[in-house]
Design a protein around this nucleic acid. Structure first.
Length: 814
RNA sequence: GCCGAAGUGGCGGAAUGGUAGACGCGGCAGUCUCAAAAACUGUUGGGAGGCAACUCCCGUGUCGGUUCGACUCCGACCUUCGGCACCA
């Protein structure tokens, strides 16, 4: 046994051979069942850290397992390459975002290749290249023509001192400008939206997909569907031209408890409703609200603020006039931007009423006849009181009765509201796909004709930290001619949200080189939907939500014929080191390169799976990976030492056969359920067992060979390099990765003898080795005859005898 | 505050109603060596008794419950980690 395990050498060797022989090239094949295993493509941040490997190595193991099971597996890789960090690098290091990004792509591709995954690099996609973003722009046009894209005003972060727009990332320390420290405010800007709200109800339906429950819950909360009523209040004695204000409420049953009405500071009627004597105060309050950062406004345990408008409004159900107040806890973008104030039955309204000494009138009582002074809002169900004709009804009955009356009189109706807002896709940035729109003074908004795509990013734009779209300062880009009238026109200078790019990349993998369409429809039909999508749970709402919307919209345009992009979703956990999530600023980043060059990619891959269950993540340990490295060494020595049979003992052979088949069964089951950690434990047990056999030399040469071949096959998905090398060592033909997954014989996998635990009154007192086929009668009889058992039961009454086949027998005595 | 996940040896974890601690790390003892490292072998939850084979008691965040039997199911609480946060 001369050869030592040298992972660096064999890993390089086999990676070159795999590449040269095109081992992992994927082709559509109607005869094979397809399996699309997708890992979220990484952002081109520069270096792959161990967290990336934790996402990618186990998914590669699973994809390889499926491949060995005979599936035609597509397991592609690419790069999410547009985004702000590239621009920041440009600003701080003077390097062009394109160069910075592509340099990172090079490095990350090299690192990914060192992992030894089955990625077919011919299918790589890079979202910042024109051949890709041309189609991102094409999709924008499709959405535009389908009426799903529109222009509207939306607030952006604004620094009043620098007079610039700020990206969210530039707002630091709870709402201050990154550069000058001024409190950031909001400013309205014309921007592009996608009508994701049109799909709110369909997106709420997760019944067609197998996703983790927490992710579904998060998406549901994000959509935030509320059922209630829209109710009109009458304006009579005010300066307003409008004669009503509509509010949305989920509690129409509390309408008799309304003692004030609240408007968001941004509500359009605020100026008209403010009476001259309150003007100064209201304007001061509204200005103050505008200066507040978003986080301040939505912080919950903040004291209520507000201002009285001076006007009153009529609650049509009881004819009462109530004051109209302005407060920032009413959000302009939810419901109608106006709320009826019911302090007795809403905690926020209660706080507000307390602060401004407004009346609190209970209209729902816990039980009939009780009408206590409230010291907090009562939000539970109850009986209606002080509610005119509705008094005495349960609040559920009142809810319906009041809605019916409102509808009858035309004062309101049942209504549904969502927290979900339309998707704002405009970004005031350089490093993104330009929005393919032209503004012409004569023709207005004109989409760029398809034939003119892509709208290329000019390479020489100035991307200074103004926060405003850098393309604005690039006249060659901005100035163009109108595609309709050929007159002078201006291009849109905002770029698209990078979530646009990631909403369709999984379609592009099926046909990445095609240049007359975003994807080959036939190939998409062959591969999609994705069978298994794996990635971090941090994408629960944004990416995963937008991608679902995108596919539903494409389906309605007739571009695809399925409803959901990702049939099954799996979230891996987070890998931590020295007590925290890895981050460059903390300096606790584990660089895989170092371990790959020291212990080999196989050891890193295997160790990551061994830390714990994939979904729970775990802590990186330098000691832990050494254990894995030792194990791989033991396998290396086990195979290279060879085996010379001395005797052939039937019992030893029988037991080894059983161990082989039991191991195959367990490893297959563990892989199928992503229990990679226990899979590895099984393989270690198997290895340890084989070491003993190697020493005992009491089985035949043939059976030894068979056992080793099985071990290597089971190891192949996890440690593709060493298994390939040892496969060659034992004289098998290239490649182990084209072999089929070993099958097991159920009979051989089952134990012939089992240890039956004997309990007396629930306490373990004895164990006995019995044939697995033992009958209940026999088992009970032999148990009761045992000397040890008799010692515990003698002179006592046998109350019960519980027998659980193959497990336990419990004797209850008194 | 609300929603979600989780609490098991010195450590990572295994066992989802039936022998708690698989597998690995670390520790201890040994083999090899002038020595050390590496490697290999044995051992390793805590406590008590015994020369010993072994025997007994305790033990899965806390307190209760269901059950012949609970890490596992139910109820209350504590802690930790994620996510959402004035959505009327």
């Amino acid at each position: 046994m001369a050869r030592r395990y040298n992972p660096q050498q064999i890993e390089k060797k086999w990676q070159e051979r795999w590449s040269a022989s095109r081992l992992y090239r994927v082709k559509e094949d109607a005869k094979q069942q397809k399996f699309y295993a997708l890992t979220m493509f990484p952002y081109t941040s520069g270096d792959l850290h161990i967290g990336h490997w934790y996402a990618m190595a186990p998914s590669d193991i699973y994809a390889r397992f499926k491949r060995m099971q005979g599936y035609n597996v597509l397991h592609p890789m690419g790069f999410d390459a547009f985004g702000l960090p590239a621009e920041n690098a440009a600003i701080s290091h003077g390097i062009h975002p394109h160069e910075w990004t592509m340099r990172n792509v090079e490095n990350m591709r090299r690192q990914l290749k060192s992992m030894g995954a089955i990625y077919d690099w011919n299918r790589e996609v890079i979202s910042c290249l024109p051949e890709y973003y041309k189609w991102t722009q094409w999709f924008f046009l499709k959405f535009y023509h389908a009426g799903l894209a529109y222009r509207g005003k939306a607030p952006v972060n604004w620094c009043p001192k620098c007079q610039t727009v700020l990206a969210n990332e530039q707002v630091v320390a709870e709402g201050f400008c990154e550069r000058c420290g001024t409190a950031v405010t909001k400013k309205d800007l014309e921007q592009w939206f996608f009508k994701i709200t049109k799909y709110a109800d369909e997106l709420l339906d997760h019944s067609k997909i197998d996703w983790p429950e927490p992710i579904k819950v998060m998406q549901k909360r994000w959509i935030g569907k509320s059922e209630g009523a829209e109710i009109s209040f009458a304006l009579e004695h005010t300066a307003s031209e409008q004669k009503e204000i509509k509010v949305f409420t989920t509690r129409p049953d509390t309408i008799f408890g309304v003692t004030f009405l609240l408007l968001a500071p941004e509500h359009p009627l605020v100026p008209q409703l403010t009476t001259p004597e309150h003007r100064v105060e209201v304007e001061k309050y509204v200005n103050w609200c505008q200066r507040q950062a978003e986080y301040m406004r939505t912080a919950m345990d903040r004291e209520k603020t507000g201002a009285f408008s001076g006007s009153y409004i009529i609650n049509r159900l009881n004819g009462e006039e109530v004051p109209i107040w302005i407060t920032d806890y009413v959000l302009p973008s939810y419901g109608t931007g106006a709320v009826m104030g019911v302090p007795a039955h809403d905690e926020r309204d209660f706080d507000f009423a307390r602060k401004f000494h407004l009346p609190i009138r209970p209209v729902i009582a816990p039980q009939e006849g009780i009408d206590n002074e409230l010291c907090q809002a009562y939000t539970d169900p109850g009986v209606m009181i002080n509610s005119g004709q509705f008094t005495g009804l349960s609040n559920e009955q009142g809810y319906e009765a009041i809605c019916n009356l409102l509808e009858e009189r035309g004062w309101g109706k049942h209504a549904v509201t969502y927290r979900l807002r339309d998707w704002l896709i405009s970004r005031q940035r350089y490093w993104g796909a330009p929005i393919p729109i032209i503004y012409c003074d004569k023709c207005g908004i004109v989409p760029v004709p398809e034939k003119d795509l892509p709208v290329l990013l000019p390479p020489d734009a100035e991307f200074k930290p103004t926060g405003e779209s850098p393309l604005k300062y690039c006249p060659e880009f901005v100035n163009t001619t109108c595609p309709r009238c050929s007159g002078p026109a201006r291009r849109e200078t905002d770029t698209m949200d990078t979530f646009m790019c990631s909403s369709w990349y999984f379609l592009r993998y099926t046909s990445p080189k095609i240049d007359d369409a975003p994807f080959d429809a036939e190939k998409v039909k062959c591969w999609l939907p994705v069978d298994l999508y794996t990635g971090g749970a941090e994408h629960a709402v944004m990416h995963l939500f937008y991608a679902r919307f995108f596919i539903k919209a494409l389906r309605d345009m007739g571009l695809v014929d399925f409803d959901e992009p990702f049939a099954r979703l799996f979230n891996q956990g987070t890998i931590v080191y020295s007590g925290g999530k890895m981050s460059k600023s903390k300096g606790n980043v584990i660089a895989p390169d170092e371990y790959v060059s020291k212990l080999g990619a196989d050891a890193v891959r295997a160790y990551l799976t061994f830390i714990g269950p994939w979904e729970s993540g775990g802590e990186w340990s330098d000691r832990g990976i050494i254990g894995i490295s030792r194990w791989l060494n033991r396998i290396w020595n086990l195979v290279n030492t060879g085996y010379v049979s001395q005797t052939v003992e039937a019992d030893a052979e029988k037991e080894l056969r059983h161990i082989i088949h039991r191991t195959i069964k367990r490893v297959s089951g563990d892989l199928e359920n992503f229990r990679f950690n226990t899979m590895l434990a099984r393989l270690m047990e198997f290895t340890n067992y084989l070491s003993k056999v190697q020493e005992a030399r009491n089985i035949s040469q043939e059976l030894w060979q068979e056992a080793i071949a099985r071990l290597l096959l089971l190891l192949a998905p996890t440690a593709p390099h060493i298994s390939e090398e040892l496969w060659a060592t034992i004289g098998r033909s290239y490649s182990i990765h084209n072999q089929l997954w070993p099958k097991f014989d159920e009979q051989l996998a089952t134990e012939e003898e089992i240890t039956l635990a004997i309990q007396i009154n629930g306490k373990l007192r004895d164990k006995v080795l019995v044939p697995a086929s033992i009958s209940e009668e026999e088992a009970k009889k032999m148990t009761l005859e045992r000397q040890r058992v008799k010692g515990y039961t003698e002179g006592k009454n046998l109350l019960k005898l519980i027998y659980i086949p193959k497990r336990v027998i419990n004797i209850v005595v008194k």
